[in-house]
């Protein structure tokens, strides 16, 4: 098969990665550590994510089953805005110290609100999503999420909400579920997780 060998050799001469330097041991160590810690540490950072449900959120709040007191008390400003506009404010308590592999059962058991939505607007750290599908909870037209800073690592995929992208978001006991339960809609495995859970 010398014809094949020639063809392969010719293709290899055109390999754009032929001159690529190997990654340094430091780079490798950093990448390995980053991969392992993104599920166990960085993902569990207490994120101050607040979900504010508008347009129908109030009805859902009235009819949903009673839940225990949130672990983190709402801050005065948040509860003030809630009472003024009649919306519901949800917090991330950041109580999970370590993430397990996401499981449909856990999602089904824990989530009391889950939806798919597209980011319409990001303004002053507040993200507005238009809901295209509700997996659990009452029908809601729009959801607002407070996104703290640029570096929050709460979402699978892009890491944070970005304009125009689609997300699958689950909330439990007034908190956004992270640890692989919320993220970009086309993150590998996330949609399957939602389909299996709901």
């Amino acid at each position: 098969m010398t014809d094949d060998d020639d063809l392969r050799a010719r293709l290899r001469r055109a390999d754009p990665a032929a001159s690529l330097e190997p990654a340094s041991p430091d780079q490798v160590a950093h990448l390995v550590e980053e991969a392992m810690s993104r599920t166990t540490r960085r993902w569990a950072l207490p994120v101050a994510a607040a979900l504010i449900l508008i347009a129908g959120g109030t009805a859902w709040a009235v009819t949903r089953p009673a839940t225990p007191e949130p672990v983190a008390a709402p801050t005065p400003s948040a509860s003030a805005s809630a009472s003024a506009s009649g919306t519901v404010v949800l917090f991330s308590t950041g109580i999970q110290a370590k993430c397990r592999e996401p499981e449909p059962q856990r999602l089904a058991e824990s989530a009391d609100f889950a939806f798919e939505g597209t980011v319409q607007k990001i303004e002053n750290g507040r993200v507005t999503l238009t809901v295209s599908r509700t997996f659990r909870g009452g029908a809601v037209g729009t959801v607002e999420v407070a996104q703290e800073g640029e570096s929050s690592e709460q979402m699978l995929g892009s890491g944070k909400f970005e304009m125009g992208r689609d997300y699958l978001v689950a909330a439990a006991d007034d908190t956004v579920m992270i640890c692989g339960y919320s993220g970009e809609a086309d993150s590998i495995g996330l949609r399957d997780l939602y389909e299996a859970a709901f």
Partner: peptide
């Protein structure tokens, strides 16, 4: 990075 995260 994303690939490694998924591999992990």
């Amino acid at each position: 990075s994303e690939t490694l995260l998924i591999c992990w």
